[in-house]
């Protein structure tokens, strides 16, 4: 399983690969991933690679990813070339209109890419007092709700819970459920 996780520096992307890593190791699987630290973290485009299985290289090659997890719609679209045919994108959408762009829909259709979108900022404004730092757990919930990663609600929520700092544990559980329901109920 190969994941590419994209967004903007400061959105909490690194936490996502820690969750995925914890689950994989508990399953006894090998993991390999690549992260961005340093200057690029300062508000610029960031990309994390994460591979579960028998790999040597930490990088996902363009056209090989199973899942693209996009914390930002524009970064998601910009990195769609990483997805393989029949791959899936889970994306935090801020402009529904842009998602209807005809070149984009043609590309998605041509590659048979499934898109699971959620309006993350709206959801967090409505339910979490606008604390956008919960975006990472929200997207993990959505990915789990989309049932594309082969990971169950129980194992992902347990990993989120165990890796959460204690003061954010309850809130993270709530956000995880929010993300899960926003996708699974829409299908």
């Amino acid at each position: 399983m190969q994941y590419v996780i994209v967004g903007i520096g400061g959105q909490g992307i690194l936490f996502t690969s820690r969750i995925l890593g914890k689950i994989a190791v508990e399953r006894g699987e090998q993991v390999m991933g690549s992260e961005v630290h340093g200057m690029a973290q300062r508000g610029g485009s960031v990309i994390s690679h994460f591979k579960v299985g028998n790999y040597r290289s930490p990088l996902v090659m363009a056209g090989d990813a199973d899942i693209l997890l996009a914390f930002d719609q524009n970064e998601g679209i910009r990195n769609l070339h990483f997805l393989k045919k029949n791959g899936s994108m889970v994306v935090n959408v801020h402009s529904e209109d842009d998602m209807k762009n005809s070149s984009l829909t043609a590309f998605l259709k041509d590659r048979s890419i499934r898109v699971y979108s959620l309006a993350g900022y709206e959801l967090l404004k409505k339910h979490m007092g606008g604390n956008f730092l919960f975006l990472n757990v929200l997207l993990m919930g959505a990915m789990c709700g989309a049932n594309i990663s082969g990971l169950t609600f129980e194992e992902v929520s347990r990993a989120v819970k165990e890796l959460s700092p204690s003061k954010f544990e309850d809130a993270n559980m709530k956000v995880f459920r929010l993300g899960y329901d926003s996708i699974s109920s829409g299908q």
Partner: peptide, 26 residues
């Protein structure tokens, strides 16, 4: 050669004006 940038995807980025975000102070 492994597929380069897909033309439909290229058009999308151009039409929507999406470019890589440069690093900025927080």
């Amino acid at each position: 050669s492994p597929s380069g940038a897909d033309s439909m995807l290229k058009d999308t980025l151009e039409e929507l004006g999406i470019t890589p975000r440069k690093p900025m102070l927080c």
